[in-house]
Amino acid sequence: MSESITIAKNVVSKRALLLAYGESNSTSSIEETDTHWVLTGPKEQDSGLSNQFFRLCMEKEVKLALEESMAPLREILYRKAFEPISKRN
């Protein structure tokens, strides 16, 4: 009996979903409706794995949010590090 879970699109973004999907073995297909993702696990799966996958999606969501928030500082840092040094002061 294969398990399927439905996640609202406003809870998990597409990017987080794809990142989780890339890392996980517990989902074999994703379908998309206007408002939801529908994930189907492989046969003989129990609901524990679906929850696990959902958690992974949320972890990825957090990671994405953090990385986005750091992007501006990261850019400043790389510019500072690699722009030509003229005068130090």
Partner: peptide, 13 residues
């Protein structure tokens, strides 16, 4: 902190 981090990054590279 950004200045010092930049120096450290440059050192790594």
């Amino acid at each position: 902190a950004l200045e010092e981090s930049a120096i450290k990054l440059r050192t790594k590279k």
